[in-house]
Design a protein around this nucleic acid. Structure first.
Lengths: 147, 147
DNA sequence: CTATTTGCAAAGCTTTTGCTAAGTT
DNA sequence: AACTTAGCAAAAGCTTTGCAAATAG
């Protein structure tokens, strides 16, 4: 895995691919790092606090780039805009498909699964940004009452 | 869990909530059942083969309803429109966040996790429509080559 | 000088909302 | 009559595209 954690590492990684490190890219990355689970819209607002002329198009392009480099991840929590966060923000989301509520659990709970997929499929599961869908405790209870 | 598998069961479930079974709802459900992993757009096209005047608004409203009843599930495979399928279409998707490729694995692999979440959080994980994000074998190999 | 990146405006696609008409109980 | 549902049109929300100007190597 290319070193991409440090500013210098990122610069080199980009350079190896014929790309450049720019102020905009640094600002977007900083914003994602500090916000945790932010939509492109929210990230744009944060970046514009420092550099008001940065366009949301650049936010989208940069998020896509950083995602492909593995520096950030996006998750679809329910419908609507996806939510971006940095790679090391460690937890898993339980999304209730009935009420839309979201709770977080430690991602260590997925360690067994990560191992299984690595051996079976050569697939490196990113357990740090998962949205798992199901029914939450409250909605299960309500279903029983209607029945 | 309310019986919702049969046409009669669905009718009753709806009735208990002050709702009705309609031809449109039946058609949408049939379409989702036969298509497997279809977008609202595709479902609409299928429904319109039988009933050309059904509006896509109705598709959206019905999918949302069926989702809340637990009859269908939606998954976000990458960006763009979500993909709907019936509850019993059993497999899990591994989505590569680098190249976007998708592979399927049997959902039994998640049984241990389902048990853990049920005990720990009272959360009933729906393991039949999951999209797990990570890096696929090919993209892992390519990363190593660039390095 | 060449290639990459940005900002801007416009277009594109998906989804939701407001409202009226139609259908059920 | 009261209430749910459907269709339609318009609006809203999110994302991408095309292109010229700016910037970096």
């Amino acid at each position: 895995m290319a070193d991409v954690e440090t500013a210098r590492g990122l610069r080199k990684t980009l350079h190896d691919r014929g790309m450049r490190m720019t102020p905009q890219r640094q600002l977007v990355l900083d914003a994602v790092r500090s916000l945790e689970h932010a939509t492109p819209e929210q990230i744009c607002q944060r970046v514009q606090e420092t550099a008001p002329t940065v366009n949301i198009t650049t936010i989208y392009r940069t998020l896509d780039l950083l995602d492909r480099l593995g520096l950030v991840r996006h998750t679809h929590l329910g419908h609507g805009a996806p939510s971006y966060s940095v790679e090391d923000h460690q937890h898993v989301h339980l999304v209730c498909h009935v009420c839309g509520s979201i709770q977080e659990i430690p991602c260590e709970l997925l360690d067994p699964l990560v191992g299984t997929l690595r051996e079976r499929d050569g697939f490196e599961l990113d357990a740090s940004h998962l949205a798992l869908s199901g029914t939450c405790r409250d909605c299960l209870k309500q279903e029983q009452e209607i029945e």
